[in-house]
Design a protein around this nucleic acid. Sequence first.
DNA 1: GGCTTCCCTGACGGGTCGTCAGTTGCGGGT
DNA 2: ACCCGCAACTGACGACCCGTCAGGGAAGCC
Lengths: 221, 221
Amino acid sequence: MVEPVEEIDDLRTADGRVPGRRGRATRQRLLECTAEMLRTGSYRSLKVIDIAREAGTSPATFYQYFGDVEDAVLVLAQEMALDSERLVRIVREGRWNGRSGLRAALRLTDAFFGFWDQHRPVIRVVDLGAEEGDRRLRTIHLALLYNVTVQLAETIKGIQADERNLGVDPLAQAGMLVATLANVAAHQHSFEAWGIRAADVRISVARHVFSGITGQRPPAK
Amino acid sequence: MVEPVEEIDDLRTADGRVPGRRGRATRQRLLECTAEMLRTGSYRSLKVIDIAREAGTSPATFYQYFGDVEDAVLVLAQEMALDSERLVRIVREGRWNGRSGLRAALRLTDAFFGFWDQHRPVIRVVDLGAEEGDRRLRTIHLALLYNVTVQLAETIKGIQADERNLGVDPLAQAGMLVATLANVAAHQHSFEAWGIRAADVRISVARHVFSGITGQRPPAK
DNA sequence: GGCTTCCCTGACGGGTCGTCAGTTGCGGGT
DNA sequence: ACCCGCAACTGACGACCCGTCAGGGAAGCC
């Protein structure tokens, strides 16, 4: 748990008030509408006036709770980042040696696929923003996969001590594996457009993860 | 070579003219400025008025050559996609067995890193647009890595016949390897922010690519 | 110079942005 | 029941960008 995503327990409106129940509800509704519009429309064309209309309120209200559209998206991104903890848990609790290792790899692969399916619209905006140099989004982008990478590196280190030296830096190895998981999860659809079946990719990735962690060739099945 | 990126040899301006030398030069300047602003600023805040100012012309001129900002970006994306041929060449011309295989994997890894370094701003917009469902960008996104994936699958198939059955679908395997290469190339910077040295990642990826293609554990060094 | 073709732009109606000052709604006190 | 005070919302406004004309310059040709 490094780089904690900045907590914002004491909400303040634009004019310094502490919002009450009604205010927080409105804010929440605006967030949900933002997420919804991000799911159905393009980030570039996301306007505060649209969000406000969708939420049945006026643009001025939006500005009470968020400085701009990016701010609202940032909050969504923070919420998503918290959820990434579940990926860490799967790595930590998995048994990675022998045949059960391949099962653990499959579980991890599935978890990545699920996480991406759930958060895809927000993730892609975080990716873009991080690449573009937005400091806040970059922090989130970092936190998003850092913990699972570190946990994976720990696991690799343990296995290395047990069995054999892989001749690579565990953290780099973990980083690469996470990069694979993330990108494959992100691009399932491209794969299917290429005529590659999801099930096949899933196997390839899991085997890859398995041997990346253990240094062994995966079991036949 | 599938899904050829739509060629646009006969340029037309908004009012149906075929642009002459001066016109094409202006158009080109607008494209370059678009690329530049994409490099230095955010996609979301990219306005035609900024591009026009940067190019020393008026917004109305921009609209003579492009329907909107997305159109201009699309052209940049098409140009980039053409350049991806060089990745295919490296796969096709590499010798993938034995020790020279690892060298080929390193060359391929480096080529991906280089390609991303060069085209990063455009790639990230293509990624976003493709995810968001923009048909034109999705086509480019597809074409971008499809050819190298197919070539890689061919290579894998050849090696499988020679040596052993890997128990995976070659195309899925190739897709995963390309996903790894692409995502690692995209996120070098994240890695360095995590304290992972680029050189270490490079090795991890190349070894991974090697064993993904050959089904063998990589040579010690 | 005069003409044609190509190229560019000023200006405009329409829309969003972000910010006020001011209105409405809501709960608590008496 | 009434009022009060604050929380919550909004209409309206100047600023700016959008996308589109009709009209004015520049380049080439005779």
